[in-house]
Amino acid sequence: MANLTPSGASISRQSLADRIAAWGRHHRFVSQDALLRLLDTPLAAITTWIVVAIALALPIILYLLLNYAGTLRQDWDGSPRISLYLHSGVDERLAADLTSRLLLRSDVASADLITRQQALLEFEQHSGFGDILNTLPDNPLPALIEISPVATDGGDIRLLVASLQQEDWVEEVIYDADWMLRLFTMLELAERLTLTIGIVLAVGVLLIIGNTIRLTIENRRSEIEVVKLVGGTDGFVRRPFLYLGFWLGLGGALGAWLVVQLSIGYLSGPIERLAQSYRNDFALRFLSIEETCLILIGGSFLGVVAALLSVGQHLSRIQPQ
């Protein structure tokens, strides 16, 4: 009974080390307890995890696909190109001559001749229609000179294009900047769309986890009241719910990781073939360790933020009566 002797006004003092140890013990206990409670209702837990996983996986997959599209842009060195298709009457010697003459021009940075044979060879290799060409009596492809202009300004380039169109040995001038620009504008649009979807879904994750935590707070209302009555600090009361948010976020992120890896496995075959057909050896690769960590940390972080928001909103309303 000696243990019960009151110490009057002086509360038993604890050293800082003791308090830190107690704090660590409580964190350990609460984190485990939060997970066990979550697993106590497996159906509810798994449902929440799946919803969070889908909401996280979608923007990640979109981002990876965009990344893939981005590599196409890197392949393009950024300088505009002009393709001069030569008249069928121009023979190889004349074509070579024209190419060197073009190189002498001050407004042309480079000029490369692609002969009819070279064009045929490339077409056979990359189009997959080589067999059809073999059935034709003659090589239908024209010779071609590829030019990079010195000018980078659109107006100056157009002047060059116009002057080249005047040459009588030129069948057709194709300036590729227009459609490249269009493609890149579309890529930028897709990027912003992905960012928007990502933000919207992240807010969705915050709401889903926040709502789950709100319900848990309601279920544990009497416990919260009693803990507050016997001297539990706000931090002590808040802790189980922050860990709940952490576990919900981490579980959702794990699920998202799985969904993404499976999707990559499923999509990589067709994407590789598509890339090859564009003379690109790009291959969709699985998520690296770093990316995996980033997803897991990001998911847990979202969960804790959702918990903080929800707890801040609902916990202060619960006061012992």
Partner: peptide, 24 residues
């Protein structure tokens, strides 16, 4: 044990004090 856990007491101390209070 709840008030002692909130107070951050050592598990061995909590055990002793809870048993004493309950036997009282």
């Amino acid at each position: 044990a709840l008030p002692l856990e909130i107070g951050g007491h050592r598990p061995s101390e909590i055990r002793g004090r809870v048993r004493a209070a309950l036997s009282k």
